[in-house]
Amino acid sequence: MPPTPSAPLTRTPLIAAGILIGAGMGGFVDGIVLHQILQWHNMLSNQLPPDTLVNAKVNMYWDGMFHAAVWVMTALGLRLLWAAVTRPDVPRSGRTFSGALLLGWALFNLVEGIIDHQLLKLHNVREYAPDPQPWNLGFLGLGVLLLLAGWALVKAGKRDAGAGPAPTHR
Score class of each variant (00 low, 15 high):
121 K>R: 15
93 S>R: 05
103 L>D: 00
123 H>V: 09
89 D>C: 07
100 A>E: 02
93 S>D: 04
106 A>I: 02
98 S>E: 02
101 L>M: 10
130 P>I: 07
94 G>I: 04
108 F>I: 01
123 H>P: 13
103 L>I: 04
142 L>D: 01
110 L>H: 09
115 I>C: 09
99 G>I: 03
100 A>G: 04
117 H>A: 00
141 G>R: 06
123 H>L: 07
119 L>P: 09
109 N>W: 10
125 V>C: 11
128 Y>A: 13
100 A>R: 04
104 G>H: 02
130 P>E: 11
96 T>C: 06
99 G>C: 07
138 G>H: 06
92 R>S: 11
121 K>C: 11
125 V>K: 00
103 L>W: 03
103 L>K: 05
94 G>N: 12
117 H>C: 02
136 N>E: 08
136 N>R: 01
102 L>A: 11
92 R>W: 14
143 G>R: 03
102 L>P: 00
129 A>C: 05
133 Q>A: 11
95 R>T: 05
91 P>I: 03
94 G>E: 10
102 L>C: 07
137 L>H: 11
96 T>E: 04
93 S>K: 01
126 R>V: 11
143 G>A: 02
92 R>A: 11
113 G>S: 12
140 L>D: 10
126 R>A: 10
132 P>H: 01
111 V>I: 15
143 G>N: 01
90 V>A: 06
129 A>M: 02
112 E>I: 02
97 F>D: 01
106 A>P: 03
112 E>V: 05
102 L>F: 12
94 G>W: 14
91 P>F: 02
123 H>K: 05
108 F>E: 00
96 T>M: 02
113 G>M: 07
99 G>E: 00
103 L>N: 03
110 L>W: 12
134 P>A: 01
95 R>M: 13
